[in-house]
Design a protein around this nucleic acid. Structure first.
Lengths: 240, 240
DNA sequence: TTGTTATTCTCATTATATGAGAATGCATTC
DNA sequence: GAATGCATTCTCATATAATGAGAATAACAA
């Protein structure tokens, strides 16, 4: 069944759409099969085509809107995130765990213009992001251990933690003090402070973070940590 | 292949998600089949589940964002639409033809609070909407005839045009004067003025409309018609 | 005209999804 | 602690529905 979705993902990754032939080639499937799929997807609005080039279609916009509306966490949290972005002037993220990565489910830009690669719906690794570490640190021990074993500690910057013992120690530290810091471990120059969000049973649901230039944020860590933890607690409190 | 997509659409239509059982029932498929599909879709992020309730997932948010970015028409048109919404204080839509319906690809709310059922990615019938009639009127004769034959002139309000001869005459009128009016033919109390957008070859690509309460808009028809036609022409001009 | 590329069609083949039911896991209740 | 209810996963034989090679059609350019 995944065939159709592979096709969507492939077109989604392309900058300005793909031709039927290219798609068949990249997926290593016969041209006739590719076109049959393309026809189905186009007829249903998941793709659009204009003179031979296929791009993502309007049905995905509709489903995407609806997905945002249905996400219980971001629905409750959005107000708090906006306040946090306002108070800190920096970009605020709300993220959840999906598989062995974090996925951003909401984002509010602050007034300071720092461009980041993040987008709602995108995913990032666990080991080098504030939200990832904040979630991982507060997961039940068994899940946490499994994930630590499973993930690869890929190096992104010179500060990325790539040693499993170091990483376990870092998680212990995060659990002890209640918040996580990403000191340019994922994107050079980008500093984050993140805190976990819990449901009524005390299980970690996601994390909130404030991100921005290391030049501003490293010095403000104490202030940010308070703000982020307060915001995360406020969201947790709404989940009752 | 459509099975997975039917499932997404079903969950998308639900207000707050559905349980596995409900889905199986509504689609009239065995429970085991439903759960197999649900597992696939959940694993890939197209759905999310929390204690037995399935809602649309974050992968759809990502694809939806990307779909908006890839839509060539709305990418170019958005600025013009905002100006039109500003100038008229009413809600502005950009729509395209998809099959035998129109699909809204962009929407800018005006300052006047009129709630409408429209959403980006949603579709409406051709025969009772301003954008639908504006597009249909300027389609090449053969396509236009085929569509007129194909669509059902379903009655939505007492003003909906339900006679095929009347409808053909209405389209001739629209073609002659260059814009379309929906005088509460789809939603009671909602009045629209719409004008077509053309590509460089002169083929109709879509339509722009201004919608709002009949109380304000019917009297302002002359003013609106000028504004909407100017906006549509500006978008057409950008498509070179 | 001829050539090119996009798209649809046909049809035999088989891979893939299906469905019935059992099994597991996890709460809650008696 | 046995028992019930519910969500979810698993097994496996079966058939449906997707597949792929190639031909046919359509649109367009040189």
């Amino acid at each position: 069944m995944g065939r159709g979705f592979e096709l969507l993902e492939l077109v989604g990754r392309s900058r300005n759409g793909l031709k039927g032939r290219e798609i068949a080639g990249m997926l290593e499937i016969p041209v006739s099969t590719a076109f049959r799929q393309l026809k189905f997807l186009t007829d249903h609005g998941y793709l659009r085509s204009s003179n031979g080039v296929y791009t993502l279609g309007s049905a995905l916009i509709r489903l995407g809107n609806e997905a945002m509306r249905q996400n219980p966490l971001s629905r409750l949290a959005h107000g708090v995130l906006s306040e946090l972005a306002e108070a800190t002037s920096e970009t605020v993220h709300l993220a959840e765990l999906r598989g062995d990565r974090v996925v951003y489910v909401d984002k509010v830009e602050g007034s300071r213009p720092v461009r980041m690669g993040s987008m709602i719906g995108n995913t990032s690794p666990l080991h080098c992001t504030g939200v990832g570490k904040a979630i991982l640190a507060f997961l039940p021990e068994r899940e946490r251990r499994e994930l630590i074993e499973k993930i690869e500690l890929t190096r992104f910057t010179e500060r990325t933690i790539t040693d499993r013992a170091d990483f376990t120690a870092e998680l212990d530290r995060i659990r002890a003090r209640g918040y996580a810091v990403d000191d340019c471990e994922h994107e050079p120059g980008v500093f984050c402070v993140a805190a976990p969000v819990f449901d009524s049973s005390g299980a970690v649901l996601g994390a909130v973070s404030v991100s921005g230039s290391e030049l501003y944020l490293r010095g403000a860590q104490e202030f940010l940590k308070e703000r982020v933890r307060t915001a995360a607690a406020a969201i947790s409190a709404e989940l009752r």
